[in-house]
Write a protein that binds this DNA or RNA. Structure first.
Lengths: 318, 318
DNA sequence: ACCGGTTTTTGTCCAGGACAAAGCACCTCT
DNA sequence: AGAGGTGCTTTGTCCTGGACAAAAACCGGT
């Protein structure tokens, strides 16, 4: 009860791993190789990290996520780290990457303005309609929030608040759409190491108005269970979302694995920022690089099976 | 493409850890101590688990969750494991613990009946009203689903589906309630190791109709960030939810830690199945053992500050 | 029957080594 | 000059086998 702020708090290696997203192995090997972090030891000889080093590790994590390599940044002092993080912003200096509306919404991302944020989101939804709302409002907001978080302009709490509010709006809107039962039947989920579930809702919000039957299982579904669900479920498509934070290498690997588990008649659509077109394509897996691509995939699927959907094409010609 | 089913699939230790919830350390130490699992080795000498052993590990995990100890069950053959899992059911043989309505809902928990499930949930909500819906329908359903999952009656996908649907219903209902802005201001979240976010929504759904201003940050918020949010946020209460799956020991520990971080004027309300009244109370932390307790806490808070809420008491007498 | 102390069980952490996959620079061939 | 291969460096993950503390189970005494 003395002075909780003055005496710096200490964290176990497991706690640090949780808070930073770095594995315990990585933390130990960095210490060995780069001389940072330099945890103290408790009575039992176990690593104990002061809060300052944890913060520094978080900065490093941000730099890694934005493309740097560990040898460049681990072991840099706090000031040097800050200097590296700053120049990120002006790289797209001209007209702000997101529209003005987006910026105004970001400004509402403070805890005491949550109600206003909800109102603004709902208004945008009403004005634009669900699909355009997702593409024109939520998607750029997502990106902006992500970047702001990378820069440290936004607190964890505010990022969570944002996620919650958008989720509320999207879920309500999706619920409004009557379940059509028409084809294709799409199973939506993410792989187990995915952290963010928002992308899933965005896809669902895009597809449901088109009359597709989406069944969302939420995030973090083991591969084997996806396969089992598809076996007994009469699905045409499995849709997967990969956020930017997704461990890049594993994505393709797991997709290939899943492809092997599913019957070839079931398509796999995979999308999201975590799938930059780095690797070559996997046969039988459709990579969707932007939100609109989901609509395109849907259209093509229906064209290939003209007997399925109730309202396949709007115009006979185009 | 030969025969994907005949040749058993192989999993890396990391994959098994993800799928079973056991840590890699635990998997290795079990192998050393109990002689199970017995993974093969790949070209590089790394452990490689056949699918059969992974399934067996999942069974073991269930038994551990239901109270057994590793020495009893690790190393048991598949048949012995199944025998142990079976007798769980008839223990509450009489009138089914959950009402009939609950059982009917559980029966809808199949992937191809998701629409019916949603409809049934919504009907129940309309009939009972939000608060009673949470207490009388969702809470027993939660428990029933949890038990069914433990017994293996329910697939992972179905459990996720349930969570998604209930979330949809609750979020919509909560959104309907106009934000009152009146006291108390409650910050709702869970600690980082919490897996389930449903409890949070249930609390919110209970409190919002009473005119409390709830701000939910969703699950998995680091302690430090909770403290930072409260500092600048004008909150009266921090509400935390602990599911049954929460690592029991750490709960009290972390609550004490959080209590030290927050100003003493801010109350902490903690509830959920993860807090069996095992340990002694922490001063300044209110442990809420059942859902109704949240309402009670709210009432007492307002009684202690008669000037705050707009509609504190309904009747002057009782 | 309950309670305090002792023993067993069990998960986590440690050190330090090894290696493959990814990234990167350089070089060659068309 | 660009496409593509080759070799070096970086980096995260996995390995072994040991140690130990917290929790659970046990046990004997009142």
């Amino acid at each position: 009860m003395n002075s909780p702020t003055s005496q710096e708090r200490l964290f176990s290696i497991a706690a640090v791993a949780r808070d930073t997203g770095l594995s315990m192995d990585t933390l130990r090997v960095w210490e060995r190789r780069y001389g940072f972090p330099t945890p103290e030891r408790d009575v039992h000889g176990e690593r104990v990290y002061p809060a300052g080093q944890v913060d520094r590790l978080r900065l490093i994590r941000r730099l890694l996520d934005s493309g740097r390599r560990p040898s460049q940044v681990v072991g840099l002092g706090p000031d040097a780290l800050a200097a590296l993080l700053e120049p990120e912003a002006p790289r797209s200096q001209g007209p702000s990457p997101a529209g003005r509306a987006t910026e105004e919404l970001v400004a509402l991302l403070r805890l005491h303005r949550s109600a206003e944020l909800a109102t603004a989101l709902n208004q945008a939804l009403l004005k634009q309609g669900l699909q355009r709302f997702v593409v024109d409002a939520v998607a750029p907001l997502n990106q902006e929030v992500g970047e702001a978080w990378l820069r440290g302009d936004i607190q964890v709490t505010e990022e969570h608040l944002y996620t919650e509010q958008v989720q509320n709006v999207l879920r309500r809107a999706i619920g409004m759409q009557a379940a059509s039962g028409s084809r294709p039947h799409i199973l939506l989920t993410t792989l187990p190491e995915e952290q963010h579930g928002l992308g899933l809702l965005m896809v669902e919000a895009t597809l449901v108005p088109e009359g597709a039957s989406c069944l969302s299982l939420g995030p973090r579904m083991p591969l084997a269970d996806i396969a089992r669900a598809v076996e007994g479920g009469d699905f045409d498509v499995v849709g997967l979302s990969f956020s930017l934070a997704y461990p890049a290498r594993q994505a393709m690997e797991h997709l290939a694995e899943l492809r092997a588990l599913l019957p070839p008649t079931v398509e796999i659509w995979a999308g999201g920022g975590g799938l930059r077109a780095r690797s070559r394509a996997i046969p039988g897996v459709r990579i969707i690089t932007e939100l609109g691509g989901a609509l395109e995939a849907l259209r093509e699927w229906r064209q290939a099976r003209p007997d399925s959907g109730p309202r396949t094409a709007h115009l006979p010609g185009a």
